[in-house]
């Protein structure tokens, strides 16, 4: 009886500590399974990959309904904005891709979506670039401007223009003079890529430390 009682207790999900213990164990096994692919692809990884994809997709169906369709569609119809039914009609048009004869109907909706995406591009372009253009107007010299700032601005301008020159596609970089800026641009690019790489390392290592902490601390209680 006692055993059954204990088993019953360990499935007592009304108790949040019990559920939490289960969560930590499931997560720990999953973590090890995913890491196992670093050694070699194997059946355990495969199993957890499928579980992960399944659970993530199930979750996204749930989220799509509760966070988008219910508040933005169902609730609106049931509170009287009945014209939202048209969204369902539009949504149904996607599914015509499975019809051989009427596949073109699905393209109506794809076409419209493409139109929406491209129409929004003007605002996107302005929003991203106008500030950047303004911020690139850096003075090279001025009254009382310290030398260091002048030099910094000069470096900024040279790098910016050299990099832009690298991305001109319709000019052949024939002679020495015209091929110099693109070449310099490419060097600047590589230097910048190195810097970007280096600056990302810390963030990624922090994540890994987080996972190792989970295994050693929350699961095995070796560290606190």
């Amino acid at each position: 009886m006692n055993i059954f009682h204990n088993i019953g207790h360990s499935f007592n999900f009304a108790n949040s500590t019990v559920a939490n213990t289960w969560m930590v164990w499931i997560a720990a096994i999953g973590t090890l399974a995913i890491y196992s692919v670093l050694y070699k692809e194997n059946p355990v990884y495969r199993l957890f990959e499928h579980i992960f994809i399944g659970a993530a997709s199930g979750y996204s169906v749930f989220v799509t309904w509760t966070q988008i369709l219910k508040p933005m569609w169902w609730d609106k119809i049931t509170s009287g904005e009945a014209y939202w039914v048209f969204a369902l009609v539009g949504g149904a048009m996607f599914y015509f891709i499975y019809s051989k004869k009427h596949v073109w109907i699905s393209r109506i909706i794809f076409g419209t979506l493409l139109g929406l995406v491209s129409g929004a591009a003007f605002k996107g372009f302005a929003g991203l670039n106008v500030d950047r253009i303004h911020a690139s107007f850096k003075p090279i010299a001025g009254h009382g401007m310290p030398l260091s700032e002048s030099l910094n601005n000069l470096v900024f301008i040279i790098v910016l223009l050299a990099v832009m020159s690298y991305f001109f596609f319709s000019f052949e970089h024939k002679n020495r003079v015209t091929s110099m800026p693109p070449k310099l641009g490419r060097w600047c690019l590589m230097f910048a890529f190195g810097a970007m790489f280096g600056s990302t390392v810390m963030a990624r290592m922090s994540l890994l430390i987080g996972r190792v902490y989970f295994l050693l601390g929350e699961w095995l209680h070796i560290i606190r």
């Binding site: 499931i26 997560a27 999953g30 995913i34 992960f52 994540l207």
Partner: peptide
């Protein structure tokens, strides 16, 4: 245990 843990 699954979605968030495997994701991270």
């Amino acid at each position: 245990g699954i979605v968030s843990a495997l994701g991270s």
